[in-house]
Amino acid sequence: MKEIKSLKDVKDFEIKKERLFYSATHEEIKCGATTDIYFIKTMEILRHLGVAGKRVVAEVFARKSGILCGLEEVLNLLKDKNIEIYAIPEGETFNPKETILRIIGPYEEFGIYETALLGILAQSSGWATAARECREAAKDKMFICFGARHVHPAVAPVMERAAIVGGASNASCILAAKILGRQPSGTIPHAAILIAGDTVTVAKAYDEIMPPDSPRIILVDTFKDEAEEALNVAEALKGALEGVRLDTPSERGGVTKELVNEVRHRLNQKGYKNVKIFVSGGLTPDKIRELSEAGADAFGVGSYISGASPIDMTMDIKMVDGVPVAKRGRIPGLIDNPKLKRVK
């Protein structure tokens, strides 16, 4: 796909009538179709003035602290360009106004990609930061990202990859896990039990037909009291049962520390101390800490990660032909950061 470099290119850019989804394709992102139009107008002006090829240094900083994510996509976006890129490592923490990315080269090589690269970093870093908060709350216990259902499918793998960069143990989205060279995590939804009509029936079928490496973790909140159903499933599967999942809806009070504590004690009393308790449903870092103390062993986190706000990113031109520059309110010249390493 031809790279968009001028207003004529914008005018000539056509969308296929049979387009199925409104998300940008890889080719559309790479050609510059997702940029703000004023960067194209900027290039028209700079070419007209004969200064589009001036060597500049641009720096990216964030408005608040977080975890950097999205760097690999930025490098893929700019991999064919005649520029140098310095960045802090993906997964590294950053502070407000800290330089997290520096680009050196002719402005015409990368100027039109400002919109895309800032969006990549802002959104991915927001997701990764939320995941890091969950990781700190869960400590060394497992937590899986369940957030794909809360975002557009085009970005679900991006979100779940960012969650893993931030500290999630794994992802439930098939594509996200495959991109990372993993197998996705997950067992069954309520739909299977509702259609079959009985939790124990589904649990037995799951144990019979699923491969050995598929964890035997069964939902126990669909029809009956969670503690009662946990024991029913444990009796049916015996030693094969690895865990029970509590996903009690908010209409029934959600998963509480009292519920987790009761299920844990009742399982222990019947000799099922090895059966883990997996909890999900509206979890936040505070809730994770609370349920972990009550006896929960693993967590499924969705909307707290998927709904995280992007971390506002800004890119400033700081040098032009070796001369320090800045807009009013900013200090001209480079803002050094010893964590920056050349990545391109």
Rank of each mutant, 00 (worst) to 15 (best):
R245P: 01
R266Y: 05
L241A: 01
A236G: 08
N232A: 11
R216V: 07
A236C: 02
V233N: 12
A227W: 10
L219R: 12
V233S: 11
L237R: 04
P215F: 06
D221W: 02
G271N: 05
A236K: 03
E229D: 13
R252K: 15
V244K: 03
Q269S: 14
E226G: 09
V233T: 04
N268L: 06
V275S: 10
G243A: 11
N274C: 03
L241S: 07
I218H: 08
R216T: 00
D247H: 13
V263S: 01
K257P: 06
L267H: 10
K276V: 05
G254W: 02
G239I: 01
D221L: 04
R252Y: 12
E258G: 04
K270V: 00
K273S: 15
E226K: 03
G253A: 09
D247V: 14
D213T: 12
P215H: 07
R264E: 12
R252W: 08
N232H: 10
G254D: 11
G253H: 09
G254V: 02
V275A: 06
E258W: 00
L267A: 06
L267Q: 03
L259K: 09
R245H: 13
K276A: 12
K224R: 15
E242P: 00
R266C: 02
N268F: 07
V260Y: 11
T222Y: 02
I218W: 03
L237G: 11
K238N: 14
D213L: 12
V260M: 05
L267T: 04
V260Q: 06
R266K: 15
V244N: 07
A234Q: 09
E242M: 09
A227M: 07
D221F: 07
S250T: 08
G254F: 05
E228G: 00
R266S: 11
I217C: 12
R264I: 07
E226P: 12
L237T: 03
G253D: 06
A227T: 15
H265C: 08
T222P: 01
Q269V: 07
A234D: 12
R245K: 14
N232R: 14
V220T: 14
G239L: 02
T256E: 14
F223L: 04
L219S: 10
L241R: 05
V263Y: 04
E258D: 12
Q269G: 06
V260R: 02
T248G: 10
L231I: 13
K270H: 14
K270T: 01
E228Y: 14
V260E: 05
N261L: 09
E262V: 13
K224N: 15
G254T: 00
I217Y: 09
L267M: 08
L246Q: 03
K257T: 07
R216L: 11
E251F: 08
Q269H: 04
K257F: 02
L259W: 01
L219E: 13
K257R: 12
R216D: 03
N232L: 08
K276Y: 05
G254A: 04
V263A: 06
V220H: 03
G271V: 09
K257Q: 05
N232T: 00
K276N: 08
R245E: 15
E235G: 01
E228R: 06
E242V: 00
K270I: 00
D213V: 10
V255Q: 09
K270S: 11
A240Y: 13
L267Y: 05
E235I: 01
V263D: 04
P249H: 03
K273T: 14
L231S: 02
G271I: 02
K238L: 05
K257G: 00
R216Q: 11
